[in-house]
């Protein structure tokens, strides 16, 4: 799923500093699962903003809202009656949400409350880690299910580089060297030969480097 972190209260307050009323809308999709933009988080943000604005002597009216998904025009349409009652809308979805909202309601202002970070999953309570870079042509079968594109700091296809030490990446003691894991897994399973041929340069045209992407399924467009 898509993982994000909420922006700081200071940054959000600055974005909405000229607003006297806002609508905060969360999303029941990924951001609810990673506890950053669901109902509870909408309520917490609304309370925090009200308290902060009260302290500044500039009270603010806030309506709380939660949409099924902000990445689907069908649910975005549910806001048609309320969206213009406020000075602005603060979206707690991933980066897709405020864009779909802005496209549906071009005269309203939308602000992102979330920094969208990566595709990943939970590795412990309150911990999410990156697992996919959305490169558009998956190669993880070559690396025993361990993705060097998203998990190697240099996206090396032929690692590990000279900075791998004690199973950790050169950039930080908090970052695992995924190439160390790939090599050890292959060695343990007697399949080191898989790593002895040079993997050719990757075709990045399927990734973001190829420009904004689109996925069309003809059978569904009829």
């Amino acid at each position: 799923m898509i993982i994000g972190d909420r922006k700081s209260l200071t940054e959000i307050l600055d974005m909405i500093k000229d607003c006297r009323s806002i609508l905060i809308t969360g999303c029941k999709g990924c951001v609810t699962v990673c506890n950053v933009g669901g109902l509870k988080e909408v309520q917490v943000l609304a309370s925090s903003l009200k308290i902060a604005r009260k302290k500044e002597g500039k009270s603010i009216a806030i309506e709380e809202n939660l949409l099924e998904r902000q990445c689907d025009p069908e649910y975005i349409a549910e806001l048609a009656d309320v969206v213009h009652r406020y000075d602005a809308v603060l979206s707690m979805a991933c980066g897709v949400g405020p864009q779909f909202l802005a496209e549906a309601y071009p005269t309203q202002k939308f602000f992102p409350a979330i920094n969208t970070k990566f595709f990943g999953g939970a590795t412990g309570h309150g911990v999410w880690e990156e697992r996919c870079a959305g490169c558009g042509s998956c190669v993880i079968h070559n690396y025993d299910g361990l993705c060097p594109v998203s998990r190697c700091s240099k996206s090396l296809m032929n690692g590990p580089c000279g900075g791998s030490a004690n199973g950790l990446c050169e950039i930080s003691k908090d970052v695992v060297c995924i190439w160390d894991r790939i090599v050890k897994k292959k060695m343990e399973q007697g399949r080191l030969a898989d790593l002895l041929t040079v993997m050719p340069a990757k075709d990045w045209s399927t990734s973001r480097d190829g420009g904004p992407r689109k996925s069309i399924r003809e059978e569904l467009t009829q």
């Binding site: 000279g162 900075g163 791998s164 060297c177 160390d180 090599v183 060695m187 790593l195 002895l196 040079v198």
Partner: peptide, 19 residues
Amino acid sequence: AACNPFADPFEFRVYRLAK
């Protein structure tokens, strides 16, 4: 090309040199 025999995993370093 460069080669770092002191990086990990040590057992793989000679294979990376071969590559």
